[in-house]
Amino acid sequence: MCRDPEPGPAETLVLERNVLSANDARAGVLRERFQTAHTHVINVVSSPGSGKTSLLARLLGDLVGSGVRAAALVADCATDNDAVRLGACGAPVRQIVTDSQCHLEAGVIEDHLAAWSAEGLALRDIDVLVIENIGNLVCPAGFDLGEAERWVMLSVTEGEDKPLKYPAMFAGADLAVVTKVDLAGPCRFDRSTALAAIETVNPGVDIIETSAATGDGCDVLAARLRDAVLRLTEGRAASAAT
């Protein structure tokens, strides 16, 4: 038998292992904890500066004002500016400073829930937990945080074809929020092109058009979350009755 002069590999070991599986497993555990605690969790993603904090600050204010126990975790590579803005309405807010990390992972959420719990804030005391992810349309797409809903935001200032350029992020969202619609005119925002782009990568996804400046669409977002809380409250009542 003829042999290669170079020795071949001693052995090939089949792994077929999903590299993101460690995060998926932790996210699965978190999802169960959220369900047990009847906490509705949303993971908000967008490119940097799309208006996440501005809109969420309004939304949290709305929710708190109507008696919903809302809380937020907000991630940035540096500074706690966004936590200060989100906490203005009185909701509990924790800043996650990620240093060089460009996305949140389930383990980080676990750590911050534990810190809250040490301060006396339990998950069952939170109806809606808003997680503002790092401004980044690429990296957070692959990292489940155990959320019930992923919201992707697209501002009218960043180009109608963003969803086509970052399909993974838009395809994975449960809700697409168009932001800064008050700037649509000056930006010559082509609404139908943008909506078609979203529809192309995520057919049938709910789309809500908003402005943090004028408050447009905020009531629709708040109502969506209140409905989710109502469903969970009914679930809580049902599980208490059994």
Partner: peptide
Amino acid sequence: GRGMQIVNIDLSE
């Protein structure tokens, strides 16, 4: 098309 897997590895002494 959404995932990423380690398919296999070659080993040697």
